[in-house]
Amino acid sequence: MAVLGVDGWRGRWVGALLDGRSVTLLVLEHVAAVLAVPDVDVVAIDMPIGLSDDGVRVRRPTGWWRCTRSWRSGRPIRG
């Protein structure tokens, strides 16, 4: 079974085609090119989560802040 995983990248699509034990990296110009890759059984598309209405991504804090506080509420995490 051949699997193609793709993600948006600089106005294009970058993909990794896994066929058996071989991996081929692809740069595809548009979504039609993604769907036109031959002999692919499954296409997995990375979908962004956390986009606002204006398209700006919500970014999670890193480092100690992430470890000690809930990134959504800002309150300490109790464990």
Score class of each variant (00 low, 15 high):
M1E: 01
M1C: 08
M1G: 01
A2F: 15
A2K: 04
A2M: 03
A2P: 14
V3W: 14
L4E: 00
L4K: 00
L4Q: 03
G5I: 00
G5T: 06
V6L: 14
V6N: 00
D7R: 06
D7N: 12
D7E: 03
G8Q: 05
G8T: 11
G8E: 15
W9Q: 07
W9A: 09
W9E: 07
R10F: 13
R10C: 05
R10V: 11
R10W: 05
R10Y: 09
G11L: 09
G11P: 00
W13D: 01
W13G: 08
W13Y: 03
V14L: 03
V14C: 08
V14E: 15
G15I: 01
A16R: 07
A16M: 10
L17T: 06
L17A: 06
L18P: 00
G20L: 14
G20P: 02
G20C: 02
R21W: 04
S22P: 12
V23E: 05
V23K: 10
V23G: 06
T24H: 05
L25V: 03
L26N: 10
V27S: 15
L28A: 06
L28N: 10
E29P: 15
V31I: 07
V31T: 09
A32C: 14
A32P: 05
A32I: 14
V34M: 08
L35N: 08
L35D: 06
A36Q: 11
A36F: 07
V37H: 08
V37W: 08
V37G: 09
P38H: 00
D39I: 04
D41A: 14
D41R: 05
D41G: 08
V42D: 12
V42Q: 13
V43E: 00
V43K: 04
A44M: 13
A44H: 01
A44Q: 02
I45A: 01
D46K: 00
D46F: 15
P48Y: 15
P48D: 09
P48Q: 01
I49M: 13
G50H: 12
G50I: 00
G50Q: 06
G50Y: 01
L51A: 12
L51E: 03
S52V: 01
D54C: 06
D54S: 04
D54K: 04
G55C: 05
G55F: 15
V56R: 05
R57I: 06
R57T: 15
R57P: 03
V58D: 13
V58F: 12
V58P: 10
R59C: 14
R59K: 15
R59W: 12
R59P: 13
R59G: 04
R60A: 04
R60G: 15
P61T: 05
T62W: 10
T62S: 11
G63V: 01
W64L: 08
W64P: 02
W64A: 02
W64T: 12
W64Y: 13
W65L: 01
W65R: 06
R66I: 13
R66C: 11
T68V: 15
T68I: 02
R69F: 14
R69C: 07
R69G: 03
S70Q: 03
S70W: 07
S70A: 02
S70K: 10
W71C: 13
W71S: 07
W71H: 12
G74R: 03
R75I: 09
R75W: 10
P76A: 10
I77H: 07
R78I: 10
R78Y: 11
R78G: 12
R78M: 08
